[in-house]
């Protein structure tokens, strides 16, 4: 039976059924591993992040990488055309992906992408928002919660001033951005385990 890896970080959702699970993961890791590394490099550039303890840096990244990847790859989901662009650059329709077994995550990603893209953030705003997303990730593994909270407050204040400066007539933009955080958390809670654990379905 045909196997599918319905994740836009792959070249294609179709996987060669003759390949072993491990080889399929190996191929997938060629794009997933650099994507995770990029999240780490991004985190390193967040002012104050490196001042956290190494343990807390790792904890935040473990908890927040999925959410940062969702924000980063939101642009692959075209809500108007109802297509997803895979790494090869080819677009696949929602119907095609559903026929391969894509389910709630696909719907949630379209919904999230549509709302985020509607805010028309520029690169600087998106970058600062992504930083807020990372430091707002689950804190159950954090040792020094106060320092993470202080960093989160600083970044949220910075995001607020940037949005109010750039979007003076759209006061709701900042509120809508903060409301994305629980959306990302529920996406994370519902779907990250399967993706981050790389369960390849035979």
């Amino acid at each position: 039976s045909r196997m599918h890896l319905v994740c836009p970080m792959s070249m294609s959702p179709y996987v060669d059924p003759r390949k072993s699970g491990h080889n399929i993961w190996l191929e997938f890791s060629m794009s997933f591993t650099p994507a995770v590394r990029e999240v780490v490099e991004f985190a390193k550039r967040i002012p104050g992040f490196r001042d956290l303890s190494q343990h807390d840096q790792v904890s935040l990244l473990k908890a927040g990488t999925f959410e940062v990847l969702v924000v980063r790859f939101a642009s692959l989901f075209d809500a108007k055309e109802r297509t997803v662009t895979f790494l090869s650059g080819r677009k696949y329709s929602v119907e095609e992906l559903r026929s391969m077994g894509a389910g709630d995550l696909l719907n949630s990603m379209f919904d999230f992408s549509h709302k985020l893209n509607a805010l028309n953030l520029n690169e600087e705003e998106m970058s600062l928002f992504t930083a807020v997303v990372l430091v707002s990730a689950d804190r159950s593994g954090i040792e020094n919660v106060n320092s993470v909270e202080a960093l989160q407050e600083t970044l949220i204040r910075a995001l607020r001033s940037l949005i109010l400066k750039n979007h003076p007539n759209e006061a709701a933009t900042f509120t809508k951005l903060l409301l994305k955080l629980p959306d990302l958390r529920s996406l994370n809670n519902m779907h990250s385990e399967q993706l981050l654990a790389f369960k390849v379905h035979p």
Partner: peptide, 27 residues
Amino acid sequence: VSDPASNLGLEDIIRKALMGNFEDKTE
């Protein structure tokens, strides 16, 4: 390249990238 069937894979990648001594055999 660590075993994909567990979250250890993600933590492994994060630690190496964070500590800056990432030896990426896949490249």
